[in-house]
Structure formats: structure tokens, C-alpha cells
Amino acid sequence: MNSGIKTVLFAALAVIGFFVPTLLGGSGAVYAACVLIAIFAVMSYGLDIVVSDLGEVSLAHTVFFAVGAYTTALLSVSAGLGPVLSLAGAILMVLLVAAALGFVTLQLREFVFSLVTYAVAVVAATIAQNWDFLGGSDGLRGIPAFELSWLGFKARNDQELWPVAYLLLLVAIYLVSAFRRSKLGQAAMMVHLNQRLAVTSGVDPQRIRLQVFLVSAPITASAGWLYAYQRAYISADVLETYFLILMLTAVVVMGRRLLLGPLLGVALIQIQEKFFSFGGYVDKIILGSVLILTLAFLPNGLFGVVAPLRNLFIRRATPVGKTIPERS
């Protein structure tokens, strides 16, 4: 497709997207669901570039989400800062955390990397539950409404918060598509698919990984930032496995490296949970099963099922000779 037509199409889609809640009736529940879908989609986009492009499974993205949420809560409750400064603070904080984590895990690959990132998530949960500075098990309450006084903008409910959430979503999608076109994105793909080729082409895999991590973490953290305003309180449950499974499912369910994949994935999951729920435990079983079945039986996601014709023109996903991952 011509890139000019593509841009126009995307712009049209972006404008239509804004009116989706209105088209669906505009009730409070619809706005609440749409805002959450936007927030969780942004959260998932952060993980998307690590899993789909870099090919590593980071299980610490709930920590980035929580860092964004907790920093926002602390800055707005204790220091009385507004949303712009709390966003800056959240991004700064998450860059520090991601750099530290990236540095520690620089040498690790595959499951050891995932294992350590998972451990980070568990430890972060224990710390959030026990540390009084973060409110302990009660969490932090009384986060003020999202207010930009210099614009005369104040979001008292989900309907008024929707423009912010939607804008954040558009920015995240733009960042991901810009990342995929960038040198870094292409280097990440090369490291993912053929590390030896990457090294011989003068690409330093460890540096690329760290850089992708530093691009990815602020995206997820900014979702945490808005989530803090949306919920008005933050507690250790932002570190629950639910968010991790939600992100992972959203990233893989439609098919990897599809720009709108994570958004559609999150939307599907949230619509099921908000409007067709079978109770928390059954919803857990459904979400987990979707994740398992997608990975085990639909390597190209749902999109790979509905668009099999497209596969005729795509080269084989797994190269023929690839067998055993490198032992390190």
C-alpha cells in the first residue's frame, strides 16, 4: 500500500476512534471501559516492542507500570504536583529503574532473563505491600483529579478523562510505529532473528537490548501514570499477575508485530471482563486459556486465522535451519 494513502487512512481511523464511546451509546460504563482499554493498551505497547521486536520476554513490565502509578501518586499527593510534572517524574523514575534492571540483566538471555524479571516483579510486590513510604498494604489514597489549570481542563469522571486517555494511546501507537521504522527497531529485529548476523554487522546486541528497554519502560509507565488518576488511589495490586497476563495476552493474541494488535487484544479482553463476565475466577481461566491456546495452536494469532491468504505472500516465520537456541 502506498504510504501516503496509509497515512490518510490512519488519520481517519484516529479521528473515528475518538468517537467510539459516543457511537456505543456514551454511557458511564462505556466511557469507563474505553478509558481502561486505552490505558491497558498503552501498558501493553511497552511490552510489545520487547516481546515482538526484541524477542525477549520481560516479566517486569508490571513493575514499570507500578513505578509510573506510584510515582504519580507520591508526587501528586505529597508534593501537590500537576499531571505534566508527575508524568515527567514518572518517566524519569522508570528510566532509572529500567536502566538498573537492564544493567543487571545485560548478560542474561532467554529464560534466565525472564526468570530474573519475574523475580523482580515478585520482590516489587513484597516491597509495595510492606514499605510504609508506599502506603504499605493500604496503598496511597487521595490522588487529585486530572487537572490542567492553564488549559482550564479538569477531568472529574471517565468521560472527561477520555480525551487524555485517547491522546496517550495515539502517542503510544505513534511511538511504536516510529520505533519499528527506526534504526534501533531494525537493529532489535536483527538481534532477535539472527544475533550472529547482528554482531558481524557491527550491532552490539547488549546495547540494543538496553536501549529497547529504555524506550519500552516509559511507555508502560505512562499508562501507570494515567491509571493513578483514573483510580484515584494506588495499592500493591497494580503488581498483580493479572496485569502481566493481560499484557502478554494482548501482545500475542491478534498476532505479533501488528501495529493495532495490542489495542484490539486489550479491547477484546476488557469487553469480555466488563460486559460478559463469568465472575473473577472463571475470567482468570478464560484469559489464561486464551493465552495458552494462542501460543500453542495459533502461532500467527487470531489475525493469522482470519487472513490466511496473506500468509501466502509472507515468508516462512521460522527459518528452516533454526533448531536449538544458543546455549549460553
Binding site: 516481546v51 524477542g55 525477549e56 520476554v57 516479566l59 532467554e110 529464560f111 525472564s114 499477575t241 502481566l244 497476563i245 502478554l248 495476552t249 500475542v252 473473577g280 475466577y281 472463571v282 475470567d283 482468570k284 481461566i285 484469559l287 489464561g288 486459556s289 493465552l291 495458552i292 501460543l295 500453542a296 537456541p325
Partner: peptide, 18 residues
């Protein structure tokens, strides 16, 4: 291994719910 990790994580989640 990448998919196996995520699948087993999903199984853990299903087991928890069940």
C-alpha cells in the same frame, strides 16, 4: 523457549483461577 515460558505462565494463571 519464549513461547513455552509464556504458555506455562498462562497455565499457572489458569490453575490459580481453577
Amino acid at each position: 523457549l519464549v513461547s513455552i515460558m509464556i504458555v506455562t505462565l498462562g497455565f499457572g494463571y489458569v490453575l490459580h483461577g481453577a
